[in-house]
């Protein structure tokens, strides 16, 4: 049961930000409400004002360009089915298909997911490998931050109270990139999310890994790129990948900062990072070669 609040439905970002500026702490941006209403029902939040961001012009758009711009109020479902997203960032569409359940996907938004900064976000982890930036609007204008700067910690972002997340911009990978996102866990939200993307430079035997990107979520206070792991495979010949995979997985496991919680012990999570980095790498390499491994693991999703 919800406590009463006033619902504002501005149609421009300016009006919305003005409202947020005036109402201050008393207002919360509201998109799909899949997180917000849940917290309000549990009595953990009681904002007297909600500012609906779904009617703001442009917030629901997906736009092409050098980068792919995804409006904040685009739902997971739209992301999953958008021909543009499927063409430019196919992995984003397939990861979106595995976020939560169909009802949450129908209503929950990309902006809500990122602005909430739950450490168990699939999108945030994946987006790190796409050099994502977020666009914030406020009465002072617009600013753009990298996603890494934006997400500061569990449920904590660089967003100021009068700012709104307008969109997220992704840099699609160069053609020839093979990528995989693997998530694992028995709980409602993932215990672990790993994104791996890379290219193979050169043909046949002489092909070498280039542009490797590894991001890991859920097992640190915030999702992170793991350069140490990327460095282990960049420039390595495909034939020799087997020799460095272990070192890469270990580097990843050392970089994360898990805690003991319902999802498991820190020790277990660290070990699972190593396991799934290896697995994700295998799938990504195969995809870079144009092949598809039939990889299926219990309690895991390979997107």
């Amino acid at each position: 049961m919800l406590r009463p609040f006033t619902l504002h439905r501005p149609e421009t970002a300016e009006d919305a930000c003005a409202l947020l500026a005036t109402l201050g702490e008393d207002a919360a941006p509201y998109a799909g409400g899949t997180e917000l209403l849940l917290l309000m029902k549990l009595g953990l939040l009681r904002p007297p004002h909600l500012v609906d961001v779904k009617r703001i012009a442009g917030f629901g758009d997906i736009a092409d360009g050098t980068r792919l711009t995804i409006g904040a109020t685009v739902t997971h479902r739209t992301l999953e089915r958008s021909p543009l997203v499927r063409a430019r960032c196919p992995l984003v569409a397939s990861v979106a298909r595995h976020v939560a359940n169909v009802r949450v996907r129908n209503v929950g938004t990309v902006g809500g997911n990122l602005a909430f900064a739950d450490p168990h976000s699939d999108l945030a982890t994946l987006f790190l490998t796409l050099d994502a930036t977020v666009e914030l609007v406020s009465p002072r204008g617009r600013r753009e931050l990298s996603l890494a700067e934006f997400v500061r910690g569990p449920w904590e972002t660089a967003r100021r109270p009068d700012e709104l997340l307008a969109s997220v911009r992704l840099s699609p990978w160069p053609t020839g990139t093979g990528a995989a996102y693997v998530k694992f866990g028995v709980h409602e939200r993932p215990t672990l999310g790993i994104a791996v993307a890379l290219r193979l430079d050169g043909a046949g035997e002489r092909a070498r890994v280039a542009d490797a990107r590894v991001a890991i979520g859920c097992v640190s206070p915030r999702p992170m790129r793991v350069e140490a792991a990327e460095a282990r495979v960049n420039g390595v010949a495909e034939a020799e990948l087997g020799d460095v995979t272990g070192a890469m997985a270990d580097a990843a496991a050392e970089s994360v900062d898990p805690a003991d919680d319902l999802h498991g012990s820190a020790e277990y999570k660290r070990e699972m990072v190593a396991v799934f980095v290896r697995r994700a790498l295998r799938v990504a390499v195969a995809r870079a070669r144009g092949a598809e491994l039939s990889a299926s693991f219990p309690h895991a999703v390979v997107a």
């Binding site: 694992f184 028995v186 699972m272 396991v275 693991f297 219990p298 309690h299 895991a300």
Partner: peptide, 11 residues
């Protein structure tokens, strides 16, 4: 049953 030996997940 089957088990994913690396993760301990039983199916």
């Amino acid at each position: 049953v089957s088990v994913d030996e690396e993760t301990g997940a039983v199916r």
